[in-house]
């Protein structure tokens, strides 16, 4: 293959990781935007989604496509319920103090990883894709499932966008984000909003985990990479700005795909983490952020 086909392949791979990253990071961004909570356990929710998908596809009988669809619904719902519980049992008691919640979500991360290790085991396990369609390009064949992930992500994010900007739930969320005191004065139960947003954010991570598992395999430590990448995306996009997060996910996902095709992925990660640190130090509003979206 010449340079351009490789470049095209890199772009396509980048697009797939950008799609998964955008969903994961949108959850993290939402939780930070509305609750001002930096959720370190976000990667663990991602991992639980993937592990959940393995359990569903392994133990539920039926045609693969249908079972996978069931996993896409069941796993995020269970993870969301778990996250909602964690919010009520732990984060609420800390009054969402930024420092304490970070420490608490680190604790949560460890507990969830232990749970996966104990019940799922230390080895990585594959989950078959719901369909094995391949697209044949002149230079190489490409997985139809990966392209489906991209399409699913676009649809999902569009729905998310509409939900936040056009529905009552979205309005309540935005009201709570801009001023919890005033939201309470208008009769909004902010405790419920917080629990709901935390659950919803975790559900998004889990859904991303489900989508990625036919590509990656389920593994109890698989959440650490996406966590770091989501942090990078959310910060570069501007903390709490959903629009910025999505733009940054696309930018980081694509450039990560392209750069790691030609350079060492470790080097890419070093540069990305340093970029994040310097963005926070010198441009705290993010590279793409212009305040909250």
């Amino acid at each position: 293959m010449g340079f351009w086909p490789i470049f095209l392949l890199a772009l396509m791979e980048g697009l797939v990781s950008a799609a998964v990253l955008a969903i994961t990071a949108a959850g993290l961004s939402l939780v930070f935007g509305v609750m001002r909570v930096v959720n370190v356990a976000h990667g663990a929710f991602f991992m639980l989604g993937a592990v959940g998908a393995w359990f569903v596809t392994t133990y539920v009988p039926g045609p693969p496509a249908l079972v996978f669809l069931a996993a896409m619904i069941l796993a995020p719902l269970c993870v969301a319920a778990l996250a909602g519980l964690a919010d009520i049992a732990v984060l609420k008691r800390l009054n969402y103090s930024p420092d304490a919640t970070i420490v608490a979500t680190i604790g949560l991360l460890y507990i969830l990883e232990q749970g996966a290790l104990s019940f799922f085991g230390p080895s990585a396990r594959p989950v078959p894709a719901p369909f094995s369609f391949r697209i044949q390009l002149p230079w190489f064949g490409y997985s139809g499932y990966k392209l489906a992930v991209v399409v699913a992500a676009v649809v999902l994010l569009a729905v998310l966008w509409l939900m936040i900007n056009r529905t009552k739930a979205g309005l309540v969320m935005r009201a709570t984000q801009s001023d919890p005191e005033i939201a309470r004065a208008f009769g909004i139960n902010t405790d419920k909003v917080y629990a709901g947003v935390f659950a919803f954010g975790a559900g998004l991570a889990a859904l991303a985990g489900v989508l990625v598992v036919p590509i990656q395999q389920a593994y109890y430590l698989m959440g650490e990479g996406p966590l770091l990448m989501s942090f990078i995306v959310v910060i570069i996009g501007g903390l709490g700005s959903l629009r910025g997060t999505l733009v940054a996910a696309l930018f980081i996902g694509l450039s990560d795909g392209v750069i790691s095709m030609f350079f060492s992925p470790t080097l890419t990660e070093i540069l990305a983490t340093l970029l994040v640190a310097f963005v926070l130090i010198f441009r705290p509003q993010g590279l793409f952020g212009r305040g909250a979206a």
Binding site: A100, V103, G107, I111, E113
Partner: peptide, 12 residues
């Protein structure tokens, strides 16, 4: 992992 995680949660 559980011991570390639970200790952090309980303490905080």
């Amino acid at each position: 992992l559980f011991m570390v995680g639970a200790s952090l949660l309980i303490l905080v």
